[in-house]
């Protein structure tokens, strides 16, 4: 059967996001042009009502029995997206840190530019971003470059858009936040075409509290160095 309708699957990894996820799902556009948009929430072993809220808001919900980490939840979401026959797959944070209205810009950039991956780049216009986050981003960009020899301005963005080919090509293994750096490594290792679109992060007191902690940064660094050591 000839495929004339593209389908966009939006993957939302979520852990205890009952307060915010409903609003995020409801803000995701139902269509982009003639493309259908389907939301898939991967509930990563939440102990609150994340799954119920997400289902009520209209998302498909896939539940992990226990908390594995954002990387594992994202990978589960990718598998679900492929089974859902998604042509374009978008990842977005569940805490409301990204504006779902920007999904269209990422998808348009992917399709117009014939890219395999488009990164929602917070560092192109970092106004309003806390200085500590900017500094941490630069540090992790540098470490990502050191480990994977690939340089982008926002290696830690959770807001990305992928072609189906990119999802099937990338070999991702990280369970933690290190998956963001691993994706950059795979983009360069597999010669995937990538572009960037500026996105404005939405920093509320909730998203600040739920965002990456300092210890997560340490974990990412440890994971990346362990990976580098194994290649030596």
């Amino acid at each position: 059967m000839k495929k004339d309708v593209f389908k966009v699957v939006v993957v939302l990894p979520a852990f205890n996001e009952a307060k915010a996820i409903g609003g995020v799902i409801e803000s995701i556009p139902a269509t982009i042009g003639n493309m259908q948009v389907q939301s898939v929430v991967v509930d990563d072993g939440s102990t609150d009502d994340t799954a119920i809220v997400a289902r009520d808001a209209g998302a498909r919900v896939v539940r992990h029995l226990t908390n594995l980490g954002v990387g594992a939840a994202t990978r589960t979401g990718f598998r679900a997206a492929i089974e859902l026959d998604g042509d374009v797959i978008v990842t977005i944070d569940s805490d409301g840190q990204h504006d779902p209205a920007d999904i269209k810009s990422l998808v348009d950039c992917l399709l117009d530019g014939s890219y395999d991956v488009v990164i929602g780049d917070r560092m192109l216009h970092p106004q309003g971003m806390p200085g500590s986050r900017i500094g941490a981003n630069w540090l992790l960009n540098a470490i990502t470059f050191l480990v994977y020899h690939g340089s982008v301005s926002d290696s830690q963005s959770g807001f990305k858009c992928f072609s189906r080919k990119a999802i099937l090509t990338m070999d991702l293994k990280a369970d933690s936040y290190a998956i963001c750096s691993e994706m950059i490594g795979e983009i360069f290792a597999k010669d995937l075409r990538y572009g960037s679109v500026p996105v404005k992060p939405v920093y509320t007191s909730y998203s600040r509290a739920k965002g990456q902690h300092f210890l997560n940064g340490i974990n990412i660094i440890l994971h990346l160095f362990a990976r580098m050591m194994r290649r030596v």
């Binding site: 389907q38 991967v42 498909r60 919900v61 896939v62 539940r63 992990h64 029995l65 226990t66 594995l68 594992a72 990978r75 589960t76 598998r79 679900a80 089974e83 859902l84 026959d85 369970d175």
Partner: peptide, 21 residues
């Protein structure tokens, strides 16, 4: 992780995904 992902997709997800399909 592999086991939990498989269980998640099989038990709670795959049926829903097929339904959507």
């Amino acid at each position: 992780t592999m086991v939990i992902q498989e269980l998640a997709l099989t038990a709670s997800g795959r049926e829903g995904i097929r339904e959507t399909q």
